[in-house]
Amino acid sequence: MEVRTIKVFTTVDNINLHTQVVDMSMTYGQQFGPTYLDGADVTKIKPHNSHEGKTFYVLPNDDTLRVEAFEYYHTTDPSFLGRYMSALNHTKKWKYPQVNGLTSIKWADNNCYLATALLTLQQIELKFNPPALQDAYYRARAGEAANFCALILAYCNKTVGELGDVRETMSYLFQHANLDSCKRVLNVVCKTCGQQQTTLKGVEAVMYMGTLSYEQFKKGVQIPCTCGKQATKYLVQQESPFVMMSAPPAQYELKHGTFTCASEYTGNYQCGHYKHITSKETLYCIDGALLTKSSEYKGPITDVFYKENSYTTTIK
C-alpha cells in the first residue's frame, strides 16, 4: 500500500517557510505537534488534498525554529505562539472599519479597549522592536488589523473576551517599542525636605499616572512627601515624541487643539466601556464603527496623549 502524501510549508514567522512532505494517514499533531492554519487549530486533523502548498504555523520545537521565533517575536515564552494563534482565530472574524481616516474595530468580545489602543497607536510616533509587531502594525494602518490585535493580546497575556485596560495595554506595548531616546527629568520640591531631581528613561519617561493635564504637570502637581507634608512635583525636561497622561476616570474637559487623542471610560472596574476622542479640525468621538463630532467635550476621561518633541522648564 502506497503512502499518500502532500507537500506543505511549516513556519513560526510566515517569513521562513520549511518544506514538509506530510503523510495523509496521520494527523498534523502526530507529525508536527500543535499546528495552526489561519489561526485555526488543526492539530487533530489529517492532511487533505486542499492543504497542498498551504502554510501551517507550528510551535518552535527545534533550534532553527526557536531562533526564527525569537528573532521575529522577541520572546522565548513557549506558550506565546499558541496564544497568538488562538487569538487570531477570533480577531480574523472582527470587522476593521476605516473611521475618520483611522483603522478602528467594530465592537465584539469586549474589544473596546483594543480599538482605543489601536486608534491611539496610529496617532503617536512609535516604532516597535519585534519585527512581528512592526509588520502587523503597518498592515493594521492599511486596514488589516487582525494579526496586530492578536499579537497585542498575546504580548499582554490576554484572551479574547476578557476586559482590558488601555493604560495597561499601552504599557505592555511600550515595553516592546523603541523608547531608548526618551528621557524625563522631574523635580520634587518640599518646604521641609528641599528639592530632589529624578531622571527617568524609556517607558517611565512617557507615562504618568495622577493627572490628565500635561500643562498642569509642567506647572506642578501636589504629591505627598515622605515627611508627610505636601510637596510639588513638576516637569523639568521632556525628550520624547509623545507623552501619555493618565488618571482614574473623572469628568474632564478636553479643549480642541490642546491634545492629540484621549480615552474615555464609562462604567466601573468590573464592567465598563471605552471610547476614543481625537482632536482634528474639530473633536471626534470614535466608538467602534461609530463616529460623532463636537466642538467641545466633557466626560469621564482616563488617558490623554500629547505630541511632544523637546521641553525644558522655565521655572527657576
Rank of each mutant, 00 (worst) to 15 (best):
residue 241 P to N: 07
residue 168 E to M: 10
residue 216 Q to S: 10
residue 22 V to I: 11
residue 217 F to N: 01
residue 282 T to K: 14
residue 184 R to G: 15
residue 232 T to S: 06
residue 7 K to W: 09
residue 142 A to R: 14
residue 8 V to W: 06
residue 296 E to F: 14
residue 313 T to M: 15
residue 303 D to K: 00
residue 315 I to F: 15
residue 243 V to F: 02
residue 302 T to H: 00
residue 162 E to S: 07
residue 131 P to S: 03
residue 228 G to S: 02
residue 28 Y to M: 06
residue 62 D to C: 12
residue 69 A to L: 12
residue 9 F to N: 14
residue 191 K to I: 10
residue 290 L to E: 15
residue 131 P to V: 04
residue 273 H to Y: 00
residue 18 H to R: 08
residue 314 T to N: 14
residue 157 N to I: 03
residue 77 D to C: 12
residue 137 Y to E: 05
residue 233 K to S: 13
residue 8 V to E: 06
residue 128 F to M: 05
residue 197 Q to V: 10
residue 121 L to I: 12
residue 196 Q to H: 13
residue 312 T to P: 09
residue 255 K to M: 11
residue 283 L to V: 15
residue 150 A to Y: 01
residue 24 M to L: 14
residue 252 Y to C: 11
residue 315 I to H: 15
residue 206 V to Y: 01
residue 210 G to C: 02
residue 194 G to E: 00
residue 194 G to I: 04
residue 264 E to Q: 06
residue 272 G to M: 01
residue 189 V to T: 11
residue 179 L to F: 06
residue 224 P to G: 08
residue 61 N to W: 14
residue 92 K to H: 07
residue 79 S to K: 10
residue 68 E to T: 06
residue 207 M to Q: 08
residue 81 L to D: 06
residue 63 D to W: 06
residue 305 F to L: 07
residue 58 V to Y: 05
residue 121 L to R: 06
residue 10 T to M: 08
residue 278 T to I: 11
residue 163 L to F: 12
residue 159 T to Q: 15
residue 271 C to Q: 11
residue 39 G to I: 07
residue 101 G to I: 04
residue 249 P to E: 00
residue 84 Y to Q: 02
residue 292 T to I: 08
residue 22 V to N: 05
residue 166 V to D: 04
residue 259 F to L: 01
residue 67 V to P: 07
residue 270 Q to F: 04
residue 247 A to N: 06
residue 78 P to S: 09
residue 64 T to K: 11
residue 257 G to H: 08
residue 251 Q to N: 14
residue 177 A to E: 01
residue 207 M to Y: 07
residue 186 L to S: 09
residue 76 T to S: 13
residue 192 T to M: 10
residue 56 F to P: 04
residue 176 H to C: 07
residue 103 T to I: 10
residue 300 P to A: 13
residue 29 G to V: 06
residue 213 S to G: 02
residue 273 H to R: 03
residue 65 L to Y: 09
residue 88 L to Y: 14
residue 132 A to F: 05
residue 17 L to I: 00
residue 118 L to F: 10
residue 77 D to T: 03
residue 72 Y to S: 09
residue 218 K to M: 03
residue 256 H to I: 15
residue 124 I to W: 06
residue 53 G to T: 10
residue 42 V to K: 08
residue 102 L to F: 09
residue 214 Y to M: 14
residue 72 Y to L: 08
residue 218 K to D: 04
residue 17 L to N: 09
residue 110 N to P: 06
residue 245 M to H: 00
residue 250 A to I: 09
residue 309 N to Q: 15
residue 266 T to N: 09
residue 216 Q to N: 10
residue 223 I to G: 14
residue 238 Q to P: 00
residue 108 A to K: 07
residue 177 A to F: 02
residue 91 T to V: 07
residue 105 I to K: 05
residue 173 L to H: 06
residue 203 V to H: 11
residue 298 K to E: 12
residue 76 T to P: 13
residue 39 G to M: 09
residue 67 V to H: 14
residue 54 K to T: 14
residue 48 H to M: 12
residue 113 Y to T: 05
residue 151 L to P: 04
residue 248 P to L: 15
residue 133 L to R: 02
residue 92 K to P: 06
residue 172 Y to S: 13
residue 199 T to V: 11
residue 199 T to M: 09
residue 136 A to D: 05
residue 68 E to K: 08
residue 263 S to M: 07
residue 33 G to V: 06
residue 62 D to K: 08
residue 263 S to T: 12
residue 280 K to S: 12
residue 76 T to L: 14
residue 23 D to S: 12
residue 32 F to A: 07
residue 120 T to C: 14
residue 249 P to M: 03
residue 248 P to T: 09
residue 84 Y to N: 06
residue 19 T to V: 10
residue 122 Q to V: 03
residue 293 K to W: 09
residue 39 G to C: 14
residue 157 N to D: 12
residue 75 T to W: 04
residue 28 Y to F: 14
residue 145 A to D: 01
residue 291 L to M: 11
residue 237 Q to T: 13
residue 76 T to C: 15
residue 99 V to I: 15
residue 103 T to G: 03
residue 76 T to I: 14
residue 70 F to D: 06
residue 83 R to Q: 08
residue 32 F to S: 07
residue 239 E to Q: 12
residue 272 G to I: 00
residue 45 I to L: 13
residue 14 N to V: 07
residue 24 M to P: 12
residue 257 G to M: 07
residue 264 E to S: 11
residue 2 E to G: 10
residue 183 K to D: 02
residue 58 V to G: 06
residue 6 I to P: 06
residue 14 N to C: 10
residue 121 L to M: 08
residue 303 D to H: 02
residue 312 T to E: 09
residue 23 D to G: 11
residue 115 A to C: 14
residue 259 F to A: 01
residue 186 L to P: 02
residue 53 G to P: 04
residue 82 G to I: 13
residue 178 N to A: 09
residue 236 V to H: 04
residue 97 P to H: 12
residue 22 V to L: 11
residue 190 C to E: 00
residue 17 L to Y: 10
residue 58 V to L: 09
residue 143 G to S: 03
residue 274 Y to I: 05
residue 81 L to E: 06
residue 73 Y to I: 03
residue 315 I to T: 15
residue 19 T to G: 13
residue 262 A to E: 00
residue 156 C to L: 08
residue 34 P to D: 13
residue 195 Q to L: 12
residue 221 V to E: 05
residue 258 T to W: 04
residue 281 E to F: 00
residue 292 T to M: 09
residue 236 V to G: 01
residue 204 E to S: 11
residue 239 E to F: 08
residue 221 V to D: 03
residue 139 R to E: 13
residue 96 Y to G: 06
residue 142 A to S: 13
residue 265 Y to A: 00
residue 5 T to W: 11
residue 152 I to S: 03
residue 275 K to N: 04
residue 201 K to T: 14
residue 95 K to D: 11
residue 86 S to T: 12
residue 296 E to Y: 14
residue 55 T to H: 10
residue 52 E to V: 13
residue 98 Q to K: 11
residue 85 M to T: 06
residue 301 I to P: 00
residue 211 T to H: 07
residue 109 D to V: 05
residue 287 D to K: 01
residue 57 Y to K: 05
residue 87 A to S: 08
residue 182 C to G: 09
residue 105 I to P: 01
residue 6 I to F: 12
residue 226 T to E: 12
residue 122 Q to N: 04
residue 20 Q to W: 09
residue 12 V to G: 08
residue 46 K to F: 11
residue 250 A to D: 11
residue 25 S to G: 11
residue 306 Y to D: 01
residue 277 I to M: 02
residue 158 K to H: 01
residue 185 V to N: 01
residue 82 G to D: 15
residue 71 E to Q: 10
residue 176 H to D: 05
residue 248 P to E: 08
residue 119 L to T: 00
residue 227 C to A: 03
residue 279 S to N: 10
residue 248 P to I: 04
residue 189 V to N: 13
residue 6 I to R: 07
residue 297 Y to V: 04
residue 218 K to Y: 01
residue 234 Y to M: 09
residue 255 K to A: 10
residue 252 Y to H: 12
residue 200 L to M: 11
residue 67 V to R: 14
residue 213 S to K: 02
residue 226 T to K: 15
residue 159 T to M: 12
residue 262 A to N: 00
residue 68 E to R: 07
residue 61 N to I: 14
residue 6 I to Q: 11
residue 5 T to Q: 14
residue 293 K to N: 11
residue 21 V to H: 11
residue 40 A to D: 15
residue 137 Y to D: 05
residue 227 C to I: 02
residue 117 A to T: 09
residue 240 S to G: 06
residue 56 F to Y: 10
residue 30 Q to T: 13
residue 175 Q to F: 06
residue 207 M to K: 09
residue 123 Q to Y: 05
residue 88 L to G: 05
residue 145 A to H: 02
residue 190 C to G: 00
residue 173 L to D: 05
residue 28 Y to N: 01
residue 182 C to F: 05
residue 57 Y to L: 09
residue 232 T to W: 11
residue 7 K to Q: 15
residue 310 S to N: 14
residue 77 D to Q: 08
residue 42 V to S: 08
residue 154 A to H: 03
residue 149 C to H: 03
residue 200 L to A: 09
residue 311 Y to M: 10
residue 74 H to R: 09
residue 290 L to V: 15
residue 187 N to W: 08
residue 259 F to R: 00
residue 239 E to M: 10
residue 213 S to P: 02
residue 124 I to E: 04
residue 166 V to W: 03
residue 268 N to K: 12
residue 125 E to G: 11
residue 229 K to S: 15
residue 63 D to A: 11
residue 43 T to Y: 09
residue 195 Q to A: 13
residue 133 L to T: 04
residue 15 I to Q: 12
residue 246 S to Y: 07
residue 239 E to H: 13
residue 298 K to M: 12
residue 52 E to K: 14
residue 42 V to W: 14
residue 296 E to A: 15
residue 223 I to W: 08
residue 154 A to D: 01
residue 215 E to M: 06
residue 190 C to P: 03
residue 245 M to L: 08
residue 8 V to P: 06
residue 295 S to L: 13
residue 291 L to S: 15
residue 240 S to H: 01
residue 164 G to M: 01
residue 289 A to Q: 10
residue 256 H to Q: 14
residue 218 K to V: 06
residue 150 A to W: 00
residue 258 T to H: 11
residue 221 V to Y: 08
residue 251 Q to T: 12
residue 144 E to D: 15
residue 120 T to R: 01
residue 296 E to K: 10
residue 175 Q to W: 04
residue 41 D to R: 07
residue 184 R to K: 02
residue 182 C to Y: 06
residue 42 V to E: 05
residue 276 H to G: 02
residue 13 D to E: 07
residue 81 L to T: 08
residue 238 Q to I: 01
residue 179 L to H: 05
residue 202 G to D: 01
residue 201 K to Q: 12
residue 53 G to N: 15
residue 59 L to M: 14
residue 295 S to R: 13
residue 264 E to P: 03
residue 80 F to C: 04
residue 28 Y to I: 05
residue 313 T to D: 15
residue 240 S to M: 00
residue 73 Y to F: 10
residue 41 D to W: 05
residue 87 A to G: 07
residue 41 D to E: 10
residue 3 V to K: 14
residue 155 Y to A: 02
residue 244 M to H: 04
residue 307 K to I: 10
residue 212 L to E: 02
residue 286 I to L: 07
residue 28 Y to S: 07
residue 113 Y to F: 07
residue 77 D to V: 04
residue 19 T to Y: 11
residue 241 P to E: 07
residue 40 A to H: 12
residue 65 L to D: 07
residue 11 T to S: 10
residue 5 T to L: 12
residue 299 G to C: 05
residue 299 G to H: 02
residue 148 F to C: 04
residue 302 T to V: 11
residue 244 M to I: 01
residue 308 E to V: 12
residue 224 P to R: 15
residue 122 Q to P: 04
